[in-house]
């Protein structure tokens, strides 16, 4: 398994080149690029600039593990407003195009966002319709769409079986799950999600979670690998059982107040230990 980390971990006042150099030096094989998050990768970034982005990544000795986006929370494929939906479809399509340009075969999206205003059943129907449409673009591009399980964050597809049912209804091999083992909180157990989804897992996000605490204010429930309540030996065994041998992508929320680069070093060490199953 190869390890990667998102470019959104790069301190805000750093250049991309400096950030990539740190990612490489701290032991990662790749980087997850977030469309819409950092100035170097936006919706108006041209194809030429995306190619240039790839060159910088490769010059640093890295590969692009996948293309994520930070736009789904404002513009989701399940929105009621057709104009917002259209924008959401466009940025996912741009992810697919960029993935091809960047030499990777997977993207991440948030498939549906339930709010007080937009109920679950509406979101479910629109998500399926949108994913079927997007799959028609993803297949010929040979890019897998990984719908991330955001569970309580998007209040949608809370259980592995719901997610499984959605993927069954979409019924396209180019649409799978980008599994985040830290997002399941109190609503289940990541090892069971891994087991249930198996070959449909496109990528894996790693982070730990402090269960039984919930989110309050700006206090995150997420923490560094091995500091929370996830059963890491069980997760490791489940990945083996599922035959997953792909990218492990750190998605760290906790930032270090001092020496921010330390987060990358610590996380890389933890992933190595996880991969080696030394607990």
């Amino acid at each position: 398994m190869k390890k990667s980390i998102g470019d959104n971990i790069i301190p805000k006042d750093w250049t991309l080149e400096r950030g990539l150099e740190l990612i490489k030096r701290s032991g990662y094989d790749g980087v997850e690029l977030w469309l819409g998050d950092r100035p170097w990768f936006q919706m108006n970034t041209s194809d030429t600039q995306v190619r240039e982005l790839r060159r910088k990544v490769e010059d640093a000795g890295l590969a692009v593990s996948d293309v994520a986006n930070s736009l789904d929370w404002d513009e989701n494929i399940s929105a009621r407003d057709p104009r917002i939906r259209e924008r959401a479809m466009r940025h996912v399509e741009r992810q697919i195009e960029s993935a091809q340009l960047l030499g990777t075969d997977a993207i991440l999206l948030v498939a549906g966002l339930v709010t007080e205003e937009i109920p679950y059943n509406e979101v479910y129907g629109r998500s399926i319709e949108a994913l079927r449409t997007l799959a028609e673009k993803a297949g010929p591009a040979r890019v897998k769409i990984g719908c991330e399980n955001c569970n309580s964050e998007h209040r949608f597809l809370i259980s592995p079986r719901e997610f499984w049912q959605l993927l069954n209804e979409v019924n396209n091999p180019w649409v799978g799950i980008h599994l985040d083992v830290g997002n399941i909180h109190d609503t289940g157990f990541p090892e069971q999600w891994i087991e249930m989804h198996g070959r449909r897992i496109t990528r894996v996000h790693l982070k730990d979670v402090l269960r039984h605490r919930g989110r309050s204010g700006d206090q995150s429930v997420y923490t560094n690998i091995f500091l929370g309540d996830n059963n890491w030996p069980a997760i490791r065994a489940a990945l083996d059982k599922a035959g997953y041998d792909g990218w492990l992508i750190a998605e760290m929320e906790a930032r270090y107040r001092y020496a921010p680069d330390q987060q990358l070093w610590d996380t890389a060490t933890a992933i190595d230990r996880f991969t080696a199953a030394k607990f």
């Binding site: 087991e195 059963n231 030996p233 069980a234 065994a237 059982k241």
Partner: peptide, 18 residues
Amino acid sequence: ESIVPYVDYAWPAAVKIR
């Protein structure tokens, strides 16, 4: 103790079963 919830079978096939 936190356990890995699989029985590791070595025969007649190497599999993990909950």
